[in-house]
């Protein structure tokens, strides 16, 4: 039996909103030691999502037997919208489940809502992704990155990112003209989360599909900062750290033909 209780429904609500436009059907893998993990690839096979929710992400977590919960994220999103952000959220499944039970409890305990969501058998490709060294790592406020990705998409379908020793340059060029945004490394002593950190082994020049970057920045509601790891001609890693877990996106770059 699985029973995972979140202190507030808002984490799960924001997670599903962050990924449901990229992938529709996902297997949620549940285990006592690892908590809930998920790996899913978008239909175009350009963007991969990897989620880890350690047991520590939950107020209470119990999983007697390893389970795979095949879920339609559109449906899960509909159910999650029934609960308030501040509600306790508990996910419950039997050992060989056909359904996932989603329970919201008002913190004042005067209202309990229960939904049963049908599970599906989902045949999905799983890719092996090993930790690797990247040419550079950038950590910046996730809202700053979201603004650049959204603004620059209005100019072009592609966003070029150039990283040098102490600056990151975003460039877009399209039918109406060109644009660039340069951000420089700095340390904000008052609020560390506002700092911009650039670690560079080698300068990087990569281009990504603006559509995918716009999907990725939907996760900026989950973490105040995002870490971007880039290497020339290799998929980039965008990581949003969660309390006791992470949401990572791996995005394949574009190349010049």
């Amino acid at each position: 039996m699985l029973e995972g209780k979140f202190e507030s429904a808002s984490l799960m609500k924001r997670l599903v909103e962050a990924i449901k436009d990229s992938v529709k059907l996902c297997n949620f893998n549940c285990s006592q030691t690892k908590g809930i993990t998920l790996q899913a690839i978008d239909d175009s096979r350009v963007l991969l999502i990897s989620l880890k929710l350690d047991p520590g992400c939950f107020e209470g977590f119990r999983c007697d037997k390893n389970l795979v919960l095949g879920l339609d994220l559109e449906s899960l999103s509909k159910v999650l919208k029934q609960g308030n952000n501040e509600d306790y959220l508990t996910l419950i499944a039997e050992d060989a489940p056909d359904n996932l039970l989603v329970v919201f409890e008002d913190p004042k305990k005067d209202r309990i809502s229960e939904f049963s969501l049908k599970l599906m058998d989902i045949d999905s490709d799983v890719l092996s992704i090993e930790d690797m060294d990247h040419d550079c790592s950038i950590t910046l406020p996730s809202s700053d990155f979201a603004k650049v990705a959204r603004d620059m998409r209005t100019l072009s379908e592609s966003l070029q990112i150039l990283v040098t020793k102490d600056s990151v340059k975003f460039m877009a060029s399209g039918p109406i003209g060109t644009g660039s945004v340069i951000i420089k490394a700095h340390t904000d002593l008052k609020d560390g989360k506002e700092s911009i950190k650039i670690d560079l082994n080698k300068s990087v020049n990569v281009t990504f599909g603006a559509k995918y970057l716009n999907d990725i920045v939907k996760a900026s509601t989950l973490a105040e900062t995002v870490t971007i790891k880039l290497t020339n001609k290799i998929p980039a890693l965008f990581e949003f750290k969660l309390q006791g877990g992470y949401l990572r996106y791996y995005l394949a770059p574009k190349f010049d033909e």
Binding site: L48, D125, L127, S128, I129
Partner: peptide, 14 residues
């Protein structure tokens, strides 16, 4: 012209 790489070009199916 920019063409999109596919993740399958980089990672192996398990």
């Amino acid at each position: 012209k920019n063409t999109q790489f596919n993740l399958m070009d980089f990672y192996e199916l398990i």
